[in-house]
Design a protein around this nucleic acid. Sequence first.
DNA 1: CCCTGTCATACCTGTTAGGTATCACCCAAG
DNA 2: CTTGGGTGATACCTAACAGGTATGACAGGG
Lengths: 287, 287
Amino acid sequence: MEMLETRELRYFITVAEELHFGRAAQRLGMAQPPLSRAIQQLERRLGVCLLRRNRRGVWLTDAGEMLLHEGRAALDATTAAARRTRRAAGADRPGGPRSRLVLAVKAGASHELLHKLLDAYAADPDAAEIEVLPSGTCEQEAMLRDGRADVALMHAPFNSLAGFDSEELTTEGQIAILPAGHPLAAHSTLALDDVRDIPGLPLARWPRNGTYPPGPGPEIHDLTQLAQLIALGRTVAVFPDSARAWLWAEHTAVPLTDAPPVVTHIAWPAHSRSLALAGLVRTATRL
Amino acid sequence: MEMLETRELRYFITVAEELHFGRAAQRLGMAQPPLSRAIQQLERRLGVCLLRRNRRGVWLTDAGEMLLHEGRAALDATTAAARRTRRAAGADRPGGPRSRLVLAVKAGASHELLHKLLDAYAADPDAAEIEVLPSGTCEQEAMLRDGRADVALMHAPFNSLAGFDSEELTTEGQIAILPAGHPLAAHSTLALDDVRDIPGLPLARWPRNGTYPPGPGPEIHDLTQLAQLIALGRTVAVFPDSARAWLWAEHTAVPLTDAPPVVTHIAWPAHSRSLALAGLVRTATRL
DNA sequence: CCCTGTCATACCTGTTAGGTATCACCCAAG
DNA sequence: CTTGGGTGATACCTAACAGGTATGACAGGG
């Protein structure tokens, strides 16, 4: 039984995403004919039909669907191996840091917690160098999987901890962030339903897995943009309690009574065996 | 940045395991010079020194150690992708089963539970075909990782659930299995310390991660062998309660008061998205 | 009916994976 | 000190194959 090559996986995944050999070849920086041949050869070697072709297009068989999912995981693991190996190379260089960890954090979230964690860990005599890598919305999982990060702060129920080892750090409630002058801002508490359909004040929308959920609210790319839209009275947003750290004077935070609590975890790939990581996790759980 | 090829990974891992280019080349079925060159090229492409060479041998740098671990995970993911794709190929063949799941079970363990699970699941109108794959000691994790299995019954604290999704099924105590005629077999309960150092009756040893822990007891390969050695009065073993199912007349089971409870879980790769798997898990948790 | 867009085929070429022969080197035995 | 066995590296060759260009086959829409 022959081994699947990464190049073949990369080709197939691109074709499966585009469902179009020409565009896929373009994305791969190659001509279409060799790509067609490579996929045919892959199908022959696996003894499996991956794509149904029609003059009018291409779509995936069940087996193709499977290879798309599993192949993505395999490619992630491979690039992770390369990235982490490159990163580990500095460790035994004279004068360099003993070792180094990349910590992925959702940009703007858990600022205070992160600060305390870094301070506490720096006190550890044989602490590794920590590089903090701000990530987009819910991008931490992907960063751990493909090796851009070694460890991450994740926020249940927004992030999924499936496939990672993790330790629980803190739990917090959620708040609604309203324009300071809005009538609802006078309340001492609110319910989720109160803020879901405020006339003239639609709930802001965040990308989940790269796409925006449907709805009337504005599509948000970063926190500054959101803060401004709230201050201008154009939208309202729901955030964990720790978001109070970056509120403006034109904002008012009102606790939500029935929003699910947000649990912050420190998470890392399940197979990690790094001493530096173990030290960081120990520090985090003792905070 | 160029991509790591699976062939290179396979070569490096073999060399890292053998710490000897000649033997590694032999295991890979190739000559030594091209292997040396391939590793050199890998080091150049990664920009990293993976091996320290000496005329008297080869050993791993820190980066090499990292690539050995991460590369194994990546190779497992790749072979898993190939295996699962091949397996999924039958699904849309006319006349074949709608789909198929491979369930890894430690040989001889949880017999009754397994039976109930299979019966209950077979009642499901759109049940997949289940292939039961008996695994060696603690081999289920590896089988899930490299795609030989899709789902497994695991026994904490013997198996590690790290990196998998899982649901708890049952909890049971542990028993000591003694030769029927032994003085200790008359007791109604025992403590772990009572059976750890019985004069003339050493505790049987199981392979953990492919190697046997040190000790005076016999090295066990399969249950029949163990059962015979116990019946002959040569050894004693500690097992979960459900092991009573395969006891012989010459065996006596005595409950252990202070042994950690054994928790049986059903576990699967965290990224699985199979409907058949979801159905099986639902059935299992409702038992 | 032709034109456009799609994937497949035919054929060529440069790269490279892998084989054989040999070197350079260390160490141990004499 | 010398020599031989065992190690990984180098030199060189060949065959396989990845990738490019040109073109074919075929379905739908104007």
